[in-house]
Amino acid sequence: MFANIWQAVISGLSIGSIYALIAQGYYVTYITTSTLNFGQGEFLMIGAMIGLTAYVVLGVPFPLALLIAVVATGLMGIALERIAIRPVLRHVLTHSWVLSTLAISIILKNGAVSLWGPEQIRFPSPFGEEVLKIGNAGIFPQELFIIVCALGTVAAVQLFLKKSILGKAMMAVAHNRNAAAVMGIDVKRMVILAFMLSSALAGLGGILIAPVTFAWAYMGTVPGIKAFAAAIFGGLENPVGILIGGLLIGLLEQLFGVINSNLKEGITFLFILIMLAFRPTGLMGRRTVEKV
């Protein structure tokens, strides 16, 4: 039992850090445009499939395959902003972006089936399949790699936003578009950058998680939505809340999985429903007062 719990904690942290990673992507686009990509899960899938192609099919070394996947999904983020976000931002219906990004995700799924087929494909971990024994629990090295890599990236993104001039400019756009513009910051470019970053984070998540799950066209939907839950849980505008949300949701579902596998899938959503009933803008979200 104890070993199970210990194992669940590691798995929970590793899947949770993936959620946190993808949710950072929701964060950067939400603060800059008040929209987010509901197809983030499909960008994760594309990252995994491109990584798979590069690493397994073409035999590219793993770090390079990872880089290719991240860059490719980042570039797709630029296209996403141009096709599905910019044209609908000024729309009368404020929810247009939900459907436009979902439409892209549907198309991407079909694209993946066309290119890679509908089957689940095994993605061999670059760290081998040998189980590490820590105490009496067995842990895949890939899981540790996920935790380190995903959390490291989350930290790097935050450092970028807080310390680099480009990141500060992006935060400035998020705080106050007009003020940013009169500082000479090109708001449009910052928005594109946000979507690029957001998509690249999802792509990275994909290549990290694929060795633990499988790589296939439908792999992205659930992590994309769980990551959305993480972002909502923490409050879309609060990066620390999002990190906590991601890890907590990962832990929660793995730990409940130990007790009863039936609880595993539902618990996240039950949890988030209860939380939102009491805190409608997330655990650490700002409470908005409508200005009249």
């Binding site: 001039i165 500060k168 400019a169 935060m171 400035a172 705080h175 106050n176 007009n178 003020a179 940013a180 500082m183 000479g184 910051i185």
Partner: peptide, 20 residues
């Protein structure tokens, strides 16, 4: 219209964004 969550120093640096 300051960038309220950013530091005083960062606000100033952003003021110089066009030539940094």
């Amino acid at each position: 219209q300051l960038f309220a969550d950013q530091s005083v120093e960062d606000n100033l640096i952003l003021g110089g964004y066009s030539r940094i």
